[in-house]
Design a protein around this nucleic acid. Structure first.
Lengths: 225, 225
DNA sequence: GGTCCCCGTCAAGCCGTCGTGAAGGTGTTG
DNA sequence: CAACACCTTCACGACGGCTTGACGGGGACC
């Protein structure tokens, strides 16, 4: 769920927009003044901000500057003003995008996705698998056992990754062989035996009695968290 | 100086735009077909791309996909189409912004600045990486080992930068080759071996036994802070 | 209780990958 | 034109991961 902060003084418009955004996976907080917007941003740490420029009191640009003083959260500016200078001003003040009213909902959603995509850094944080005895950082390709770094070979990583991505589920031998070694190795179950032995030696507390990487005879393997 | 790649088939329009952009600090390369655009992107490594959707031959969206396959360079899409679906399509294909013709020059410049700001800022570019044996100033492109200034070549800097920006994380060989040398070099692992050897000679206390730039055989390299 | 199949373990050999040094090419600078 | 820095390419030895085979254990079925 993505936290979205909407700063807009027109309550009816804001409420309508919030309602339109929620079904698309956004958890929307609404602020109706600039001050409230800054306060909410500080307290809720939104993943993306939608900021209407036409605010009474604290001006929209000042809100933008207030945000940029401490965060790089993606900000999409809404405005009824089509004039070029105000676009330039907002973008140079640190806005990520500038959408003029009236706008299409689909376009706003697409621009929100684009703004967020880069905010996230493009590197989708992949899961870290933790058990009592070891932890696997799939994106960093790093395994730790009792605080010690353990190195896995490429094939070992591929097998382990497939298993831990389906926690508790049975992964068929054929599936493992196809995806790791290729479709023509479908029947080489020897490989799996050797590699599972190696994986258990490196990760299991007692490799002779597996607790995490379980064999289902004749079928496949299962990762038990 | 910012390298900008302009991909547009209307030569007169492209030339005019290029001339307008140059005084604002852009070094502009122009491609008049999608194929040429992809080739130029791979060889010149632009800091920002302006892509006209209305291309003959290879479609603008296909060019965008070709770029996104290997680089996260900011892409601003130009289009005569105001329709919402084409905006959504382009933004979801990885465009950073979508500007409809006709547009004001100042707005385009502002949107280019905004797109670039994020592209450059996603990772802490200005950071200084410190270890017990050396320090790297990424923004100043300056390396110090035991208080002595050490010179790194451009390619060495690119490789080192990619690695230290992901401390502790494994960076795949393909990823390094694609982003430093370009997508068509993704199998030339020879380059990496040579450059890593050179980097280690310059930065590692004992280049024979690397402590900071670790090889993960068959997978890639890792910077260990 | 015997047989068979599947599994786990170990060890040996092969081959791919890595690190290194050096040569050749290219573009730049003085 | 010479000197230089940088990149590309190649060859060679060393290392390590992958493959392969042999062996023993355990459970299912007869």
């Amino acid at each position: 769920m993505t936290r979205l902060l909407l700063i807009d003084d027109e309550q009816r418009f804001a409420r309508a927009l919030a309602i339109s955004l929620r079904p698309h996976g956004y958890e929307v907080d609404v602020a109706t003044t600039g001050e409230e917007g800054l306060a909410l941003a500080a307290s809720t740490h939104p993943d993306v901000v939608v900021l209407d420029l036409g605010l009474p009191g604290l001006d929209g640009l000042e809100v933008l500057e207030g945000l940029r003083a401490w965060t790089r959260v993606p900000v999409v500016v809404l405005s009824a003003r089509h004039s070029e200078p105000s676009k330039v001003e907002a973008l140079d003040a640190g806005a990520d995008d500038y959408v003029t009213k009236p706008f299409g909902m689909e376009e706003l959603l697409a621009r929100l996705r684009a703004a967020q995509r880069r905010g996230a850094g493009g590197a989708p944080e992949e899961g870290v698998v933790e058990t009592k005895h070891f932890s696997l950082d799939l994106s960093a390709k790093r395994a730790m056992v009792d605080g010690e770094v353990v190195r896995l070979t490429p094939k070992e990583w591929q097998v382990v990754t497939m298993l831990v991505r389906n926690p508790g589920k049975l992964v068929a031998q054929r599936q493992l062989l196809q995806e790791v070694w290729g479709p023509q190795y479908e029947t080489e179950t020897d490989y799996l035996r050797v590699f599972l032995a190696s994986i258990r030696r490196k990760l299991e507390p007692v490799s002779g009695r597996p607790r995490y990487f379980i064999t289902e005879p004749g079928m496949g393997y299962r990762f038990e968290p």
